[in-house]
Write a protein that binds this DNA or RNA. Structure first.
Lengths: 266, 266
DNA sequence: GCCGCCACAAATGTCAGACATTTACCCTTG
DNA sequence: CAAGGGTAAATGTCTGACATTTGTGGCGGC
């Protein structure tokens, strides 16, 4: 791909890294392809070589590109991207069309991990944690059914799930909360693109979140695990990972069909 | 802390970042404390400001320090460290005395996550995956009981668990394999420090790994999950997270005692 | 005495230019 | 045809100067 399709202006200093990083995450260069040279980037964006080099250094640190003297910069394989880095997650969250495979991978991860996290949360929850969870849930309720507030609703949704990860009281799990934003933001973008408001299923989704909150509040690990699975099944439908019909007719779609959805709809 | 206790020489270009990063991971500066100034680092290590700035930029990208013009560099809270970044994991792996709390957090994560990963692996395993698993297991067997090969044994151990994460066929889980190295390396360091070779328990540990491999090979998700728990219980004993007596007398120490061990032995 | 303003010092951030090093490619030569 | 070297092009590095931000102390006015 050429540079010409990228906007020439960008915000502050690391705005350039963000711009280039998002272009990479959106798949505008394929793995193995060569990335533009420093000199071209300087000219196109009208910035000093220093800024370009700083931005590129950031991309290297995130495993997005690899640079070698004399050869240039090449785009790394998706498998080497540091998906778990907060920067990458944040960038991915506000891309208009994130890579579909990537979103499926993230959701498959959530589907296999969040039940266990909910289990931990139910055991470790303290007053402060419950407050966070409750505040997020109330926010979701308040913004439900308001099409113009769907962005805020998604934020509360992110906050709710992030609160669960935090409630696990484990440093590692807590950092994975960063992955939630891209996963959940993609949900509202999809609903807006399809002009198919989630109102119908939103009450249902809200109810499932409520049961999860209640299970954690009462320290019932088994119930929390089951409720988390329930929430994620609903989300899988809204994300279009499993067909609506399947989820509505069948009470419990097998984990197999969600985790390995990629293999049958590439 | 002052700079005087750090070695003045280091390997190549990013060797400086590694040196400083490991000092941070080892806890030689406390969160909130101010990090040495660029000028001092230049003088102490006898390198150009460029190299120092590059190294510090890396530390910033990893969430280890935060820099602001005019104020200087301050060490971030542990919660903001990007533990999931491969660089951080790799650095942590060969620190002589890694932070004990950090190791407990990582192990607690593994204890709650790996059973689910093993379950996925049992479902998704293909021929190539089984080869990797088998090769690692054979390596563990070959190096068992050889005190002088404990380092190689640990590498095979890492490879075995990493192979399980890879077998999940999920990008996110796969990246978490990086966390295994610090966790497992710490194990052999501990055994060497205590002059208490793991020979006694090693046969047992090996047998448990073998049962896990067999469960995955036969695509038995339930058995794989149970076997993974079994392996981790053994590891918890070897890591000193739960007392030997407890694990030997009681067949199944509660997850609670492993996950929240930090709260009773701070 | 307290408050606000200003000047200064100290730290990081930025820039521009030259040079070093690595790499790929072509052209020559045996 | 193969081996060699030379050249161009790319990233990596160094240096010095300057810009910008931040904290601080002193000064004067109220």
């Amino acid at each position: 791909m050429t540079l010409t399709s990228l906007p020439r202006h960008h915000g502050g200093a690391d705005g350039l890294a963000r711009l280039l990083g998002q272009a990479l995450l959106a798949g505008r260069w394929r793995p193995g392809e060569t990335f533009p040279r420093e000199r071209d980037l300087c000219q196109h964006f009208e910035v000093s070589r220093n800024q370009v080099r700083n931005a590129l250094a950031t991309l290297v640190a995130l495993g997005l590109i690899e640079r070698t003297a004399g050869r240039g910069s090449v785009v790394c394989n998706i498998g080497e991207w540091h998906l778990l880095d907060p920067l990458v997650s944040a960038w991915m969250a506000d891309i208009e069309t994130p890579d579909a495979q990537l979103l499926r991978e993230i959701f498959a991860f959530r589907y296999s991990a969040e039940p266990a996290v909910a289990r931990l949360a139910a055991r470790a929850a303290e007053a402060e944690d419950l407050e966070r969870l409750e505040a997020a849930f109330l926010g979701m309720q308040r913004t439900a059914g308001m099409p113009e507030a769907s962005a805020r609703h998604a934020e509360y949704d992110v906050a709710f799930h992030d609160a669960i990860y935090r409630t696990s009281h484990n440093l590692v799990w807590r950092q994975m909360g960063h992955l939630l934003r891209p996963s959940i933001i993609a949900l509202i973008q999809r609903s807006q693109a399809h002009l198919q408001p989630l109102d119908a299923g939103l009450d249902d989704s809200l109810a499932r979140h409520g049961r999860l909150l209640e299970a954690i509040r009462s320290r019932d690990a088994d119930a929390a695990e089951a409720a988390a699975v329930d929430v994620l099944r609903r989300t899988a439908v809204d994300l279009g990972i499993v067909a609506d019909a399947q989820a509505e007719s069948v009470q419990a779609p097998s984990a197999e069909s969600i985790i390995h959805a990629k293999e049958r709809s590439p």
